[in-house]
Amino acid sequence: MQSFVCAGRLVLGGILLAASLAGARAATIDESVERYRAYIIGNVDEALAGARGLRERIAAKDLAGARRAWIEARVGWERAEVFTGGFVSDLDDKIDGWPNATTGFHAVEAALFVRGTTDGLAPEADKLVLHLTDLDLKVHQMRLSGQGMLDGAARLTYEIGESKADGGESRLSGTSLDDMVNNLAGLEQAYSVIFAAPLATADATLARQAQAQIERLSTLLTVGDLRRVDPDRVRAASEDLVVTLQAAAAALGLRRPTLEMLVQ
């Protein structure tokens, strides 16, 4: 699990650099969102590939392999949350519902990591693949907007600040910290590809502030063990960043992001 995290950080460093160079050409936000689509597609593809692998390992009755595939599928999924949280929350429920959904990642998690079996999981894995395929389609076709991405980014940032002292979302597999780290990686992606350059032009101070706050969150989450996360500091850092993103909205000519999806 650690290796995903590290690899993610290296890749992101590159993206940050590429993004600020691209930003110098002053792309409009909606053009940048189009560019960002490629990243979401990559994330969702990764989740889908993981889910297909999961289905295959389940068919082969390979428990260890299925567990690995489950964890791999989560990485792309958690990174795509900026998008799912901003645009497709109905699918989000089916894929990532809690605490008592009948389908999705966590239903499979319970079987793999608690009951320690792949038996009877085939239909569940099929459904997961189906929903992720649906999501993949949507990612390709859906009209994306800077506003939606900023909403998704703000919501996800706020969520990262929620206490995981009780074991967090993926407590059965013990990968809750990875969830948070991958959420942040997705956020970093979205911010750097879509907003960093236009914000630097519109308000350089805010842009520097956002960058520093993302890095601070990242430092606070790079602790290797959920139990070592300092919830107060993570919470404060997450809220500081949301406040900055809200201020950035005005500078970018967008509406202030709302923290819940209110119309559906």
């Binding site: 809690w98 605490p99 008592n100 999705g104 966590h106 319970a110 929620e162 009780d166 979302e169 993926s170």
Partner: peptide, 14 residues
């Protein structure tokens, strides 16, 4: 009191 609590189990099992 409580804090954010997440995670999922099949309803029947629950």
């Amino acid at each position: 009191r409580g804090r954010q609590r997440r995670g999922v189990l099949p309803a029947a099992l629950v």
